[in-house]
Computed example of a mutant assay.
Amino acid sequence: MAVLVGKKAPSFKATAVVDGEFVEDFSLDQYVGKQHVLFYFYPMDFTFVCPTEIIAFQDRMEDFKRKNVAVVGCSVDTHFSHWAWLNTPRDKGGIEGVAYPLVADATKTIAKNFDVLAGDYDYNEEGELVFIGEPVAYRGLFLIDKAGIVRHQVVNDMPLGRSIDEALRMIDALQYFEEKGEVCPANWEEGKEGMQATHEGVSNYLASH
């Protein structure tokens, strides 16, 4: 699996559903210079763990907005599938009320470029082109700064839901570093002290704790 941290996030243009409307040629490039981006993948529409995550992000949207962070989801489904799911009530297994962008990656190229696709095409012994593995994305999450650089990534296997609190904590840590120039030690949370990235700074921090 590729480590994209420190590299420019792969660029793409695709159709997304944003607040119930189709948006063609949607791209993360629109956020460069303006906002941090939390870009995440989920395996598939109309499944079980996925709506809990998608709705959990929506439920914390005010927290992300206060931090000037755009949240964008993506799966290998079509935009028509996204739209249908968004128009399905939550008590019927849907994600009605989710307003942030959901990108359609029906070609699987976005998941492939972010290296979260849970399989790949190959030839079998009969020379037939087949898909080995599962043609969906793992639960990848990428925190991208205003310059378009990936600063944090985590990839979960499909049965393992992610923590929205941890995603917000990493945003706080990145923005603290960008503002203060201090690094964030283990278990750092908003409101806690950082430390200087020097031997003296580390020693002083450890001595005070």
Rank of each mutant, 00 (worst) to 15 (best):
P101E: 02
E193G: 04
T78R: 08
A173T: 01
R90I: 12
T198Q: 08
E128C: 13
I149N: 01
A118L: 15
E166Q: 06
G97E: 14
F142S: 00
A84P: 05
S81H: 08
L102W: 05
L168F: 00
T107P: 03
E189V: 05
I110V: 13
G93H: 04
V202C: 11
W83Q: 12
V116M: 13
N204Y: 03
L160R: 07
G73V: 05
Y138I: 03
K180Q: 07
D165I: 11
G93P: 02
S203P: 04
Y100H: 12
Y205H: 15
V76N: 10
I164R: 00
E200Y: 11
G127I: 10
N204I: 07
F142D: 00
A99D: 09
C184T: 08
A99Q: 13
V183F: 06
G194T: 01
D120G: 13
E193L: 04
G127E: 11
K192W: 03
Q153A: 06
K108R: 14
K92R: 15
T88V: 06
A173R: 00
P89A: 04
R151I: 12
V150L: 07
V136F: 15
E179N: 09
E179Q: 07
V155A: 01
L143K: 02
N87R: 09
N187S: 12
D165S: 15
I171M: 02
D115E: 04
F177E: 12
D77C: 14
A147I: 12
C184N: 02
I149H: 04
R162N: 01
N204Q: 10
H152M: 11
G161E: 05
E178I: 07
I149P: 01
A104C: 09
Y121H: 10
Y176D: 01
S75Y: 07
K92E: 15
E193W: 05
L174H: 04
V183K: 02
G140N: 07
G127V: 12
A147E: 15
P185N: 03
D157W: 11
E179K: 11
E200I: 14
G133V: 13
F177T: 15
E200L: 12
D122A: 12
D145K: 02
Y176R: 02
K92G: 15
G127R: 11
L129G: 03
V154F: 03
K146H: 15
E190Y: 02
G140V: 04
F80T: 13
T107A: 09
P135E: 06
T198A: 09
E166F: 04
A106I: 13
R169Q: 07
W83R: 10
E190F: 05
F142P: 00
G140K: 01
V202Y: 11
K92C: 14
W188K: 02
G119A: 11
S163M: 03
W188I: 00
Y205P: 08
I149L: 06
A106W: 10
F177S: 13
L86N: 10
I95N: 00
D91C: 09
T107Q: 08
N187F: 13
A167R: 00
N156A: 08
Q196P: 01
L168Y: 00
M170A: 06
D172E: 13
I132N: 14
